[in-house]
Design a binder for these strands. Sequence first.
RNA 1: GGAGAGGUGGCCGAGUGGUCGAUGGCACCUGUCUUGAAAACAGGACGCCCGCAAGGGCGCGCAGGUUCGAAUCCUGUCCUCUCCUCCA
Length: 429
Amino acid sequence: MLDIRLFREQPDTVREGLRRAGADPGDVDRVRALDEQVRSLKTEAEAKKAAINQANKSMSKASPEERETRRAELRALGDSIAEIDARRTDTEKTLQTLMLEIPNLPLAHVPDGADEHENVELRREGTIRRFDFKPRPHWELGEALGILDLERGVKISGSRFYVLKGLGAALQRAVITWMLDLHIEQHGYTEVYPPFVVKQEALYGTGNLPKFGDNLYHDVEEDFWLVPTAEVPVTNLHRDELLEASALPMKYVAYTPCFRREKMSAGRDVRGIKRGHQFDKVEMVKLVTPQSSDAELESLLSDAEDVCRGLGLPYRVLQICAGDLSFTAANKYDVEVYAPASKGEEGEEWLEVSSCSTFGDFQARRANLRYRPEPGAKPEFVHTLNGSGLALPRVIIAILENYQNEDGSITIPEVLRPYMHGRDRIIRA
RNA sequence: GGAGAGGUGGCCGAGUGGUCGAUGGCACCUGUCUUGAAAACAGGACGCCCGCAAGGGCGCGCAGGUUCGAAUCCUGUCCUCUCCUCCA
């Protein structure tokens, strides 16, 4: 959520930001009008409350007869306050609903652009392998090796579900553990094992609700929601807390499965394991001071890149343009790995394996995540950031396709071998 | 699932209808003392909203209700703890 003060004090800045983000700048005037109403109703009611409080003080010392005579008068005053408050509450609700659906503003240095076509490629790293045979897509490799079973996934759970078997399952587990260890030992993150279902407050905190509920799985009976990403439970760890400055930055890393309905993506990426309703991800989350958040985003990105480097996967980094930023992000980089065959006959593809974002105080305001800059100082909102490090299925795709051999076997990247009992290849069982 | 107890400020914990935003402790800030620190002593300091300020309003899990007046009484709800039951 944006700071209402920005709407009051710098409406043009907000309008411009919303326009760049592809949102409706007209909301600025709607917000301002509602805010005006709320404040004037509040002032009106508060003047009356001050009067009634004053009167009530003398009532406690008044004689019974005096109380009796003043009772009706005070009650009338009370009733008129209640009426004003009711109107204010209504208006506030409307304002709140509107505010919750207004996206974050892009940081000033985020480039203009309407959609993903205008994202800016910042760099490429790693060498793209030249094959002396035609590389095969991961679903062919996986099925042939007996490590991926798409059909049976569909049988037991429906479309967009799959089964990893044998060394396929082991490979994914190895990647998860290696990535966690890398972030814990090399990058200074603290591992967290969070719940995989959350209450709706948590989803409001991170900005998934109220706007994006239709991408979430929801158990109505218990009002439980399956997490779409570890970002949700981990960012909410300190919701409604007032942190000491010395506790910042907080850096967490968590492995969780992620559950998404993907209603909006029907028909996209239907082959293989690129886009499923359930996928695994290692996620990094940071809570930092406002002063450090730009630098923390850079180091977050570098932590994600280290995973690609370690695995020997060619990758590129994109600066996301203002119009392609997600609802909550103020700035965002995507990391995409190269996969030579994941488009099937169409060939190669860059697969998004990480989004590294800063949210400024947008999530912190929703989640009431504050810190005290100095002992005795006023509390302020922290800044939150997160980035995938990385998303599993696409890493698996990239490993299978980039490390495939002509005979259909897969060479296991060196860093993973200690996590797979020293094995260096996946061959048909 | 059954029975009971409880949710109060950054943390702990008093407070059962009016002078209570709330006693006390810890932590925090300032000062005295000290070479410095600690200790001791004195003072300060809750959060949010409106306001240039003076000042005002709101906040005792949450939502309603009773009352001139609610942390305190009533209803609902969520959560925590203890015991029982069950279980990996």
